[in-house]
């Protein structure tokens, strides 16, 4: 199996309807499945969400990312998937996380909402690095807390 690592960053529109509890439940479900599947596939990464959208980073071997992404693509809980970056990388950033989760505290949700608004979901206005950087900052903060 090819060991070359790739990193995918994408943004999608959250189509989960219902109240906050429902949203929390669905996210919990996504994270549980992701952690289980990703560990098995050797994929790591992070997921960020707010009521409007998802942003996700996936790292791992090319075909594992491809498989995972194809599965995620067919998920009706989101739509308008746009890939911001899909590049070869030297090392994993999220090597310890099967699927880290960012965006639970109010502040980070707000921050995310802000860049969502600025882009008015014109994902092309953001590059993969920006989202990646945001995800990274949030993770660092979560670590320190």
């Amino acid at each position: 199996m090819d060991k070359t690592l790739y990193r995918l960053v994408y943004l999608s529109r959250n189509t989960i309807t219902g109240d906050d509890d429902r949203l929390q439940d669905e996210i919990r479900g996504i994270l549980d499945v992701s952690q289980r599947n990703n560990r098995q596939a050797g994929v790591t990464g992070a997921l960020m969400f707010n009521t409007g959208c998802f942003a996700q980073v996936l790292e791992g071997p090319h075909n594992r990312i491809q498989d995972t992404f194809e599965r995620i693509q067919c998920d009706p809980r989101h739509s308008h998937v746009s890939v911001l970056a899909f590049d070869r990388v030297e090392a994993r950033y999220f090597s310890d996380w099967d699927m880290a989760f960012v965006g639970q505290n109010a502040q980070s949700i707000e921050q995310f909402a802000d860049f969502n608004e600025r882009s008015s979901f014109d994902a092309k206005a953001l590059d993969g690095d920006t989202v990646f950087e945001l995800l990274r900052i949030h993770l660092d903060e979560a670590e320190r807390a």
Binding site: Y6, H62, Q73, S79, V81, V83, F86, R88
Partner: peptide, 14 residues
């Protein structure tokens, strides 16, 4: 139409 409009990842390309 909706599903196939979404990007594919192939051989390092989108």
């Amino acid at each position: 139409v909706e599903l196939l409009q979404r990007p594919f990842l192939i051989n390092g390309h989108q």
